[in-house]
Design a protein around this nucleic acid. Structure first.
Lengths: 127, 127
DNA sequence: TTTGATGCAAATCATTTGCATGGGT
DNA sequence: ACCCATGCAAATGATTTGCATCAAA
C-alpha cells in the first residue's frame, strides 16, 4: 500500500548540481569530496545512493572504467574516448555511424536495446 | 642485468588449456573452480596472476562487466552482446561497420589505438 | 644454483548494507 | 505521524600483494 514517495533532500539537490554540468566523468569519491565542502558531514554512502537514484531515473549514465564507476550527466547517445595516458574521459559524437547490427550471432532472437562503445588512445593534451 | 625469463609451469598450461577454446567469457573464479579439479591446491591468486600474464602477452582480452572481469581468448577485433536477462556474453562480429571516427572532440591530436563496443539487450534463449 | 612462480593469508579498494536517527511530506 | 533518506560503521566481493617456500632453468 505504501506509495514509496520520492523525497526531495538537500543532499540530492547538491549532488545533482555538482554533476549535472560536469563533463569530466567524475567518480563517486570525487563528487563526495566536492559536496563535502557544502555539507561537511555528508556520507559517501549517501552520495552513492543518490547517484544510483539519478541513474535509475535516467538523469545520468554510468561508465565503468577499471573497476570504478564514472558518472556522466549526458544521457543522449554518445560514446567515449579514453586516454590511456592520463585516463581522462572525453565524450565522443561519431559521424556517419550507421546502425551496425550484430551479424553473428544471427540477429534472430536477439533484441538490441542499447549500445555503448569506447575508443582508446592518446588525447590531444598527452600527445 | 636480470633476464627475467618466463617460466613454463603446469598452472599456466592448465589455465590456458581451460580458457583458450572457451567462448563463454568466464570469470577468474569460474576458471579457478575448473582448474582446481586438476590441481586441487592451486590458489586463486595464481589464477589471477596467470590471467594477467596471458593478457599482457596478448593471448586474451579482458571485458569488465559489473565490476567483474571476464576473460576472452578471442583477441581479433570483435564486440560483445550482453544479455540483460541472463548476463551471458556473446561475441559479436558486425557487418558494414566502417571505421567511424570521433567527430567531437576534433580528431586533431587524438590518436585512436583500439575500440571496444558492447550491445545490450535480450538474447535468443531469454526472449 | 638461481630466481621466477606458487600457495596462503592478509590487505586493498570501490561499493553496498544494516540500523538507529533525522527530516520531508 | 508516517516512513523515506541520512550518517555511520561494518560488511561485501573482486582483485592484489607480501612473504616464505617451491620448482623451472
Amino acid at each position: 500500500m505504501a506509495k514509496n514517495i520520492r523525497r526531495h533532500t538537500k543532499q540530492l539537490d547538491l549532488i545533482w548540481n555538482e554533476i549535472s554540468h560536469d563533463t569530466s566523468h567524475p567518480t563517486a569519491d570525487q563528487i563526495y569530496e566536492r559536496v563535502k565542502k557544502k555539507i561537511p558531514n555528508i556520507s559517501l554512502g549517501t552520495v552513492y545512493r543518490n547517484l544510483q537514484k539519478l541513474e535509475a531515473e535516467g538523469q545520468l549514465q554510468v561508465l565503468t572504467l577499471d573497476r570504478t564507476q564514472h558518472f556522466d550527466p549526458l544521457v543522449d547517445r554518445h560514446h567515449h574516448f579514453i586516454c590511456k595516458s592520463c585516463w581522462r574521459v572525453y565524450d565522443v559524437f561519431a559521424d556517419g555511424e550507421q546502425e551496425a547490427r550484430p551479424s553473428c550471432p544471427s540477429p534472430k532472437g536477439f533484441t538490441v536495446t542499447s549500445r555503448q562503445s569506447s575508443w582508446y588512445g592518446t588525447c590531444q593534451s598527452c600527445s
